[in-house]
Design a protein around this nucleic acid. Sequence first.
DNA 1: TCCAGTTCCGCAACCGATTGCCGAAGGAGT
DNA 2: ACTCCTTCGGCAATCGGTTGCGGAACTGGA
Lengths: 341, 341
Amino acid sequence: MRVPTLRDVAELAGVHPATASRALNAATRNLVNGDTAARVARAAAKLGYTPNPIARSLKTSRSGSVGVVIPDLTNPLFPPIVRGIDDVLSAGGFNALIVNTDNDSAREDLQVASLRARQVEGLIIGTARLDDPLLHRLVRDACPVVLINRRVDTPSLPSVTGDDATGVDLALRHLAGLGHRRIAHLAGPQWTSTGQVRLRAYRQGVAELGLVDSPDLVVVCEQWTESEGAAGLTRLLARDTGCTAVLAGNDLVALGCYDVMRERNIACPETLSIVGFNDMPIVDKLRPSLTTVHVPHYQVGAEAARLLLERIADAAAPVKSVLLPLRLVVRDSTAAPPPVG
Amino acid sequence: MRVPTLRDVAELAGVHPATASRALNAATRNLVNGDTAARVARAAAKLGYTPNPIARSLKTSRSGSVGVVIPDLTNPLFPPIVRGIDDVLSAGGFNALIVNTDNDSAREDLQVASLRARQVEGLIIGTARLDDPLLHRLVRDACPVVLINRRVDTPSLPSVTGDDATGVDLALRHLAGLGHRRIAHLAGPQWTSTGQVRLRAYRQGVAELGLVDSPDLVVVCEQWTESEGAAGLTRLLARDTGCTAVLAGNDLVALGCYDVMRERNIACPETLSIVGFNDMPIVDKLRPSLTTVHVPHYQVGAEAARLLLERIADAAAPVKSVLLPLRLVVRDSTAAPPPVG
DNA sequence: TCCAGTTCCGCAACCGATTGCCGAAGGAGT
DNA sequence: ACTCCTTCGGCAATCGGTTGCGGAACTGGA
């Protein structure tokens, strides 16, 4: 049994397909007599008609879908974001096509090309590296884009991120308040805006709070991963800086610290306090549970989707970027520094 | 600047669009002269032509996409599965449309209808409840389907799952080997095959190993969630069964147990051993790290995608179900039972 | 020289919906 | 009675590929 088409509906209702189309489409229904519209609607219901979105897309060149480009869905950071995106998108009649790039820019190019071939009406990108030629191409082609998590200098690109600077400040104040003076920072990759912003905020906070300021206290990790975090802390410890607290670039990096501390029998928080960033799911279940800066991931996704829908509806809409407020979640991985001597 | 179409390519190459189409399509390339084909290929490259998949789909009525139906992407179980699906699918030239149902069957119906309207060529379903009318409709309509994680009685439905029975057996033998005699089971929802299979395997294992067998030792959770797990353990403890180990229906349920144990100051594993199921990401980072049955989630997804692609390529292919081998990962949440008295 | 058999490519009809354009019908106003 | 305007709905083109069919050109054999 074939799936019913518009022509079938039209035939059953005794009208021309064009009329049926208008009757079924809310925006054009006023062009059709009420009775006729009702008749068509009944015919459609009787046949269980669903419009073929492929055919519609072909004609209207609007696909009703947007691409979501992330490094890796397996990173616990992203599922809540994607969920937020998806919920807002489907409420708006759109759907998300999710692709993973594994932070490989060649792969990213391919994926984006594939998405555009599939006629996505916009893109939400969570993989922006600073100065990414891909992004320039996208703005040149006037493809609606919203960045999440990371930002770039191009002011024409809207973005949704957490207010990282304030987040870092909250963390530093918390540690300083506990009495810490030598606070290290395991910074994230400097080819991401997040890595840069957090590092800059760290430096500023250290200065403002009058903490010990030394280049030895900063280690840059090349990836936002557990293993890089572990390597980072190892390097930091080798420098013998006497630091009593570590501000990790994000939770994954903090997890790496946990590994190293367990391995070396360093007591947390008694000997070394750790603060993470993101408040990923489950970090409250670690032992010690992780003190971290909470980022409202679901809202990040939801807000990004809203922004994108706005831009799709009206390409001339003003470019706005959203900075979501963060808050510090104090748990068990931070405490007063050990008494000196 | 308009995006180039097949007609543009044809014009540049000086041939008819039909010829260009054949030249560009590997399967029909042998119908055109080698030189011509090369000329067309060059023209396409020069224009940066990419075929419009929408138009192609409309004509061929093959969309190149499959639907992936899961309860909630936010559940840490699913990202690896989805990743496995996506990797295999894209290697096969397909792409995944992911939808969340939140275990709401009305929503599931809607989502599946939407997917089918979008002409998906097949479905991977991770939300099957036993005796789901939706599944009957799908087999009736000859829509290629592969089930993951859960199974149903209908033998015409291929599925990919872990070998749960063996997994439960491994866990029980491990606990019995440590000396436990009263092992409780926080069973999962009995409207899922996984919940049923694991409970059945538990009963059989208890009998085979000669462990204490009592209905008091079984509590059924209504959802695979942390809160249900907590509620379950609370109920179990209220029964005062004297059990020394708990086999949780899955890791989320085990997490709920952790909450209760922490709250009540029950030492794990000294007083109560816990075994989970799934080996979700991060459970190795809990304190105590969780002993659990490892399910190869990525492979589950990959295998399901392979099966589905097979069925799509050949609807008459034999229906096979895959049972992936599991292994027990012993960590710190299990130990010998406390000495009696 | 003529015929049969290939090889190659163009023609045109699709797939299923949308939409600009136009004509028919009906109502109101003078 | 006649004109003008509005409302309604049909016609046909269109989106961008794919594919069955048939014809032209060319090959080789007798």
